[in-house]
Amino acid sequence: MTPTVSPLSSGSTDPVIDLRSAAFGYAERTIITDIDLTVHPGEVVAVLGPNGSGKSTLVKGLVGLAQHTAGEVRLFGEPLDHVHDRWRLGYVPQRHTLATSLRSTVGEVVGVGRVAHTPWWAPWRAGSAENRQLIAQSLSLVGLGDQQRTDVTTLSGGQQRRVLIARALAAQPEAILMDEPTAGVDRANQQVLGEVLTRLAAAGRTMVIVTHELEAIRPAVTRAVAIDSGRIIYDGPPDAIDTSISGHVHHHHDDDDDTAGVGAPTLTAPHPMPPVERPHA
């Protein structure tokens, strides 16, 4: 079957994400401060930064899991709290496992991506031909087309990450935010994930990928943004980033607990600002 699961496009040419002096955090503290970032349709942006830099909070703020505390945030041209169809911004959370206390098949987990499209008063539509086809196509896009009826807990960590990506795809989002899709995954599976992301990028998907490991996903990425201590310290082509901020984003921790400020090398000494390139500014 040829995968055709595609975004339900609103036909808008507005920036997918548009942040002006935006701040995100939780009740007690602000973690991301004063960020300006614009992501246009078709871009694949890697967001890099050490543990505790706030890159995860940025993604969580955009999907409504962290609070937007200041500044202006627009998604698809609309202010964040006016965005009605939240599924338009897809989300691949940072999870190391899909295991829950109940048995689930891969197809059932991916089917969760269709729930926002299924009215609560018409549960029979969950099993509609259209939904079944979208689930199968999403799985096939991530290379798991033959695993639909497999128990998710028996999949490897790398395969489970691909299930999470398929679940996001099944919701037909206009853009997808991914939080550390390759963290804690062995080399062989990282390579497969990189190829899946490259395939999605080639199909014109808009993606924002928070990651420690640019290497595995570099072919997919059109732009890199580095965050440290809640601020953007680099924004430009992915190839120039290593020389630009070498030393600041090279702290690899596969199993980071993402606790802000704990164990992360903090930048106390002033460092030269790299050239900030904003191709779409």
């Binding site: 939240r86 599924w87 969760v112 969950a126």
Partner: peptide
């Protein structure tokens, strides 16, 4: 509500992000 009950227990963060 079965699919919603399932979705929320399966991954509350994802369910929230999907609205």
């Amino acid at each position: 509500l079965r699919s919603r009950l399932y979705a929320i227990a399966q991954d509350e963060d994802f369910a929230r992000s999907a609205g």
